[in-house]
Simulated scan of single mutants.
Amino acid sequence: MNTKFLFTAVLMLCLNNQSYSQNSNYIYENGTLWHTGFYNILKSSDESVLDNTSYKSEEIALMWDRLANNGNGAWVEPLSWIYTINYKDNISAEMRIRQSDYTKTEADQAVERYKDYLGRLPYVLRNGIKLINIMKGNANFGGNNWNNSIDIYEGDLSERIIKDGNIEEMLLHEGAHSALDYLYNEDWITERNKDTKFVSKYAFDNPNREDISETFAVWLALRNVDNRLSTEDYNKVTQGLSYRIAYLNSLNFDINPIVGNTLSTESFKYEENLLFPNPVKNQINLINIDAKAYVIYNFLGVKVLEGVIKNNRVIPFDSFNTGLYFIKLDNNKKIKFIKE
């Protein structure tokens, strides 16, 4: 069979199968990259903090070629065109373009093609991406945390995602691999185990490889000051991933040039046994407190309710969505609770 035809057929199947999952373990049937509701996490109209690019030299560059070794992948050391990309917030990266695939003029054009896409990524990713490798091939992009690299393969897939407008989301996903995969630790796993779902089947099938990249993308959409998710997607994500999203909030990532909403759930110790039941169903019953007033925030740090504590110490809460919430009291006590 023609391998190019087979690749294109599989790709089209993924692109056209974007349904919500009926599986109780995850929200979306495919990876977040293929859900059209996530195509505008970053937009072409968003600010890019690209400063400049410059050609440096010809050098041997270590890069992962997932098509080498009969499709099993291998580390290769091709002679490459080397460029430097500088951003306005004083960070930079090295772009390496495989000479066997590109002339010098074509390499210049490839740098031009991707520089602004890269400039729209949040600081926390750009600061963690040190190497950007570009080569020809019909393959998904890749990202490696150990050497902080991303791999861009130019072929049918890259042409399609540029045309469809989710190239920034592809770079966002692989950039999270490059910059954030170190977060697979006990804290992440603890919060993940509290959540009810994975964001996608891809994350569910590969929990210790894809969960952070898949979750970070939707977290960034939620953190944007103009929330980039539909109401349906917002509700599904916030109800299924509330603990992991709250954990990412607690890390206080710099997301420049993206303008984020203000977080009010800053890191602090939470008191236990100050309310019941927990999880909450219809009302919050406060106990063992001497506070007079309260403010409640959702896990994104957005204030959802405030008021004076009544004599019965009951706060009605039946009209709110399921998920993770935080109460701040005027006596400096803080309480974390779940709404069922």
Score class of each variant (00 low, 15 high):
residue 280 V to I: 09
residue 244 R to G: 08
residue 269 K to R: 06
residue 211 D to E: 00
residue 127 N to F: 05
residue 298 N to Y: 09
residue 129 I to M: 14
residue 198 F to L: 03
residue 283 Q to D: 08
residue 81 W to M: 01
residue 132 I to W: 04
residue 194 K to D: 01
residue 216 F to T: 04
residue 93 A to D: 10
residue 181 D to L: 01
residue 298 N to K: 06
residue 209 R to C: 03
residue 252 N to V: 12
residue 149 S to H: 01
residue 198 F to C: 04
residue 100 S to Y: 02
residue 228 R to H: 08
residue 20 Y to D: 15
residue 71 G to T: 02
residue 153 Y to I: 04
residue 183 L to M: 02
residue 241 L to A: 12
residue 137 G to R: 07
residue 183 L to F: 01
residue 193 N to Q: 05
residue 274 L to D: 04
residue 304 V to K: 03
residue 261 N to L: 15
residue 284 I to W: 05
residue 315 I to Y: 10
residue 219 W to L: 06
residue 146 W to Q: 15
residue 301 G to I: 11
residue 279 P to K: 07
residue 4 K to Y: 00
residue 52 N to C: 13
residue 295 V to I: 12
residue 199 V to S: 00
residue 183 L to D: 00
residue 102 Y to K: 01
residue 307 G to N: 15
residue 204 F to N: 15
residue 104 K to E: 12
residue 182 Y to V: 10
residue 336 K to G: 07
residue 50 L to W: 02
residue 183 L to I: 00
residue 172 L to H: 08
residue 10 V to K: 15
residue 187 D to K: 04
residue 112 E to K: 10
residue 36 T to I: 14
residue 136 K to G: 14
residue 292 K to M: 10
residue 216 F to P: 10
residue 254 D to T: 08
residue 74 A to S: 05
residue 338 I to E: 08
residue 52 N to I: 04
residue 139 A to K: 13
residue 340 E to F: 07
residue 90 N to L: 04
residue 11 L to H: 06
residue 154 E to I: 12
residue 112 E to Y: 04
residue 227 N to F: 07
residue 143 G to Q: 06
residue 268 F to H: 11
residue 23 N to S: 05
residue 267 S to M: 15
residue 175 G to H: 02
residue 68 A to D: 07
residue 313 R to V: 09
residue 307 G to E: 11
residue 130 K to G: 08
residue 272 E to H: 12
residue 24 S to D: 10
residue 196 T to G: 00
residue 31 G to R: 04
residue 243 Y to P: 13
residue 123 Y to R: 08
residue 332 N to L: 15
residue 231 T to D: 14
residue 248 L to G: 11
residue 330 D to H: 05
residue 263 L to A: 11
residue 108 D to Y: 11
residue 88 K to A: 12
residue 329 L to C: 09
residue 307 G to I: 12
residue 208 N to D: 09
residue 206 N to C: 11
residue 104 K to C: 10
residue 169 E to N: 14
residue 114 Y to V: 04
residue 44 S to P: 14
